[in-house]
């Protein structure tokens, strides 16, 4: 499926946010994620499903420019 990460379309099989974080190798610390403009704490990533067209904003350290 296609989702939107920081205004860029990417293709992923990740069913939830936790799987996406793994796929994108998000670090353990220094990362904040919002789904449809709502910030989601890390403890809820596993139970936050991704669907076609979901809009994700990731603020993460370690790969800025």
């Amino acid at each position: 499926m296609n989702i939107n990460v920081n205004n860029k379309t990417i293709t992923t099989d990740a069913a939830n946010l936790s799987a996406l974080a793994q796929e994108l190798s998000l670090p353990e610390k220094g990362v904040a994620v919002a789904i449809e403009n709502k910030m989601v704490p890390r403890t809820l990533w596993e139970q936050t499903p991704l669907e076609e067209g979901t809009s994700v904003v990731i603020i993460k350290a370690a790969c800025g420019g």
Partner: peptide, 21 residues
């Protein structure tokens, strides 16, 4: 690399240069 850094911008040029940085 493990720290989030945010920068203040007023123009597109500011954003581009912060992104580079």
């Amino acid at each position: 690399n493990n720290v989030i850094i945010g920068g203040t911008a007023n123009t597109f040029e500011d954003i581009a240069s912060h992104y580079q940085a």
